[in-house]
């Protein structure tokens, strides 16, 4: 693992002061000790809060919209067959067209999700992860015992 953590603090995380620092500058309380300390200071980090909120907001809305679109399609087909049986072209009815539209919605949502994650979430997560690993690398120099089998 990373042994020279000060070098990485200086290069990859610009807002981190190069001084010897246990927790994060934004953490409200003095950071607790133990292996989870790095993660908890990350938890209070404003960048983590915003990226976590962005991830949840997108995931929830995208799921509600795509699953909701399908379930409302099922309900419409069951309880409003008159609407769904309108002919559009040839044998294609509105209901059949909506069935095809489900596939389009799925493809679209998947594409938007991947794009959202690449653009808005992944870069921040990578930066925060480097910070956690730096912190844990620092901790590992202390006798950490059997950290990997802690649970």
């Amino acid at each position: 693992m990373v042994s020279d953590s000060t070098a990485r603090y200086g290069s990859s995380v610009p807002h981190q002061p190069p001084s010897e620092q246990r927790g994060d500058p934004f953490s409200p309380a003095p950071a607790p000790r133990g292996p989870a300390a790095g993660r908890q200071s990350i938890h209070a980090h404003p960048e983590f809060r915003s990226v976590s909120a962005a991830y949840r907001r997108f995931g929830t809305w995208a799921t509600v919209l795509s699953v909701g679109a399908f379930l409302s399609y099922v309900v419409l087909s069951s309880f409003a067959p008159g609407v769904m049986n309108q002919r559009l072209a040839g044998h294609l009815t509105l209901g059949l067209a909506l069935a095809l539209a489900q596939f389009a919605v799925i493809g679209m949502t998947a594409w938007l999700y991947v794009r959202h994650m690449r653009k808005n979430v992944d870069p921040v997560v990578r930066r925060l992860r480097a910070q956690v690993e730096d912190h844990e690398g620092e901790q590992r120099r202390l006798p950490a015992g059997r950290r990997l089998r802690a649970w």
Binding site: G59, T60, G95, Q102, I106
Partner: peptide
């Protein structure tokens, strides 16, 4: 016919929850 197609759609939509959440 139609009801079967509807059922097939559900089989695919199920993956959205896995992917997104």
């Amino acid at each position: 016919g139609y009801d079967g197609l509807l059922y097939l759609c559900g089989t695919v939509v199920a993956w959205m929850m896995v992917l997104l959440l």
